[in-house]
């Protein structure tokens, strides 16, 4: 138990941050909430539309599908990278560190266009496929969900590495030795000891990736080419292009609620300090 004065001190230190959050997020959030129930007329009409409008529904379903796919691929890739980072030889560790850190230095926009350069019909991959005669027609790798999943996965892998690596570091080496001594093969140790013992990291990483992915805007906008619209882009379209502020606001609020629920779940699985790696 902390002493009372301790709590008070902590509260004082946190106060500026809380104030900033209230000003920068709380007030605008209340504003958006107000739009969602007042525009174009007072009532829950926009939420009703949200539940019935097939277009909005299809965007939510697509978003869920893309986020789920991205979560699976990003967490799987992050698990492999974290494994090398934590348990590899010194050279492998260094390589893994670069894989994790370099993406942080390149802006999300640059990375998205990088993928376009790689995946588009005139991109590196399709050019090579045609030049070598493997294919006559270009593969549709971008301006569709595939491109979106690739770009988002790439962006989110580093964020998934940290919770996984921290779970792997916490694992007692002797437990693995014990399993070996009891006669278990490497495959067996990996699947029945290593993976279950790092499950908290996997779940934490999955939640982080999923929550981040829900709010993605730039990557799907560029790599989806307007054909694979996700929720965040839909909000943008409703507010800046339609303009249908009420529906845009209602979608925003729904998204915030989903993210809030998932974040609560996240904190139940992981203490925030663990995410820092």
């Amino acid at each position: 138990m902390f002493a009372r004065s301790h709590n008070l001190g902590a509260a004082l230190l946190l106060a500026p941050l809380l104030l900033l959050l209230a000003l920068a997020y709380g007030i605008p959030f209340l504003g958006v909430m107000k739009w969602s129930v007042t525009l174009p007329e007072p009532g829950l009409g926009q939420y009703h539309a949200l539940l019935t409008d097939p277009l909005v529904q299809s965007v939510f379903v697509r978003t869920a599908r893309i986020c789920a796919l991205v979560t699976v691929t990003a967490v799987a890739a992050a698990y492999a990278i974290a494994y090398v980072w934590v348990r590899g030889t010194p050279g492998q560790r260094l390589a893994a560190e670069y894989c994790i850190l370099v993406p942080f230095w390149i802006s999300v926009l640059t990375r998205a266009f990088g993928w376009v350069a790689l995946l588009s019909n005139q991109g590196l991959i399709n050019t090579w496929l045609r030049a070598t005669g493997i294919l006559d027609e270009p593969l549709a790798l971008v301006r569709n969900e595939f491109g979106v999943v690739v770009g988002m996965t790439h962006f989110l892998i580093p964020f998934a590495v940290f919770p996984i690596a921290s779970a792997m570091r916490a694992l007692d080496e002797r437990v693995l030795l014990a399993a070996r001594g009891l006669g278990a093969s490497r495959t067996r140790i990996f699947w029945s000891i290593f993976v279950p013992m790092t499950m908290s990291g996997i779940i934490g990483a999955a939640l982080i990736v999923f929550v981040f992915a829900l709010g993605f805007f730039i990557t799907p906008a560029i790599l989806g080419g307007g054909r694979s619209v996700m929720v965040a882009e839909l909000v943008y379209l409703r507010i800046f292009q339609s303009p249908d502020w009420g529906l845009g606001a209602a979608i925003s609020i729904t998204l915030v609620l989903i993210v809030g629920l998932l974040t609560t779940a996240l904190f139940r699985f992981l203490r925030p300090s663990q995410m820092a790696g």
């Binding site: 002797r174 030795l177 013992m197």
Partner: peptide
């Protein structure tokens, strides 16, 4: 058979 210091049981 091996018994480690700290036992090294499988916690899960």
């Amino acid at each position: 058979g091996m018994v480690f210091q700290g036992y090294a049981l499988f916690p899960h």
